[in-house]
Nucleic acid binder design. Structure first.
Lengths: 188, 188
DNA sequence: GTCTATAAAACGATAGAC
DNA sequence: GTCTATCGTTTTATAGAC
């Protein structure tokens, strides 16, 4: 009977799924506990509050992207241009694997001006993403240009999700990947 | 006191302000009525529901941009390239005039997967914006290219707001304008 | 007296927390 | 499951302007 019905990881996974799709404020603790097959009360055995749960979700997402996506930028078994293609393609693939696009981008829009609580973790995520892209572009371009190209890639990627949500047409994301590669290849 | 304390336009203005900054779900009817100096109950003499209020806000924003921003694209007293610069600069200026960036983009992220209620108005807005940009790019480029350049400008613009919210650095928006112009000028 | 915009109170439902 | 607070909403009453 003291056997855990669901693991903490499973709770975080379900929370990520719901937060991505419905947003933070629209997702209730009832939604979350029901998705895990738990009583509302049992839920606080895993997390002390809704905020704490979101912080854990943000950490999990960050950790996943750092090791499975951003790490591609530093994989020396591949050519820089191959890393760039593989990393952005994976970023898109992972974000598109469940509804809602990019949790970090969604949360930035939904909460950045309402609470500072989630800001540090979101900033860390994007700084790391920027660093990875700038690292790759710096193989072909000087540092300041590489930094700008990295910023452009991220800005396009996040904006593309808005258009995808509105039009349900994924070509916006494919265009982002293509242009990010074109700018790598462009004549210097 | 049968005299109206505030006009309907003022209510919409306050609602736009709060919805932009706090988002739809986070903004309560108490917040809105307080911002107008009204009791919660009195608010329902202006609007039948929170949804109805948001629909009115979306209409107001759309109307404003159609006549004051998108219209610049068709102002034949200016050269196409001047129109492009003026339109995007104004888009940025208007959105930046109060906290929260682009209401349409924010709402797309926050509600697109939760309710279909606001989708048509948001789609109309972006279709009109796309049309205006594609019209301008078509002076220099063939239709399919112009369409892609228009999409790229919007995608960059929306994504830039996410980075601005996170970093509080407006250079992302200035870069969007600069690149949109550079792509107009690029050699064909 | 009859409007109507307001305040005030209270509704049922649901939020997050225990 | 229960708690309390607050949500969006509705109702009732009041207070000028016609």
């Amino acid at each position: 009977m003291p056997i855990q019905k669901v693991t903490k990881e499973e709770v975080v996974k379900q929370a990520l799924f719901l937060f991505k799709k419905q947003g933070y404020h629209r997702t209730s603790m009832s939604d979350l506990s029901a998705a895990c097959g738990l009583q509302k009360g049992s839920f606080y055995h895993y997390f002390t509050s809704k905020d704490a749960l979101m912080l854990e979700v943000l950490d999990t997402v960050h950790q996943y992207f750092a090791t499975r996506v951003f790490a591609i930028a530093y994989d020396e078994s591949l050519m820089p241009r191959e890393r760039l293609e593989k990393m952005i393609a994976k970023q898109i693939y992972v974000a598109a694997s469940t509804e809602g696009g990019c949790l970090m981008g969604n949360m930035a829009i939904e909460t950045a001006l309402v609470t500072q609580e989630f800001l540090p973790k979101m900033r860390e995520f994007f700084e790391e993403y920027l660093r990875a892209l700038a690292h790759l572009y710096s193989f072909k371009w000087e540092p300041t240009t590489a930094q700008k190209l990295a910023e452009q890639a991220i800005v396009e990627y996040e904006g593309a999700w808005i258009m995808v949500k509105l039009t349900q047409n994924n070509h916006f994301l494919q265009d982002v990947l293509q242009r990010a590669l074109d700018r790598f290849d462009a004549v210097n």
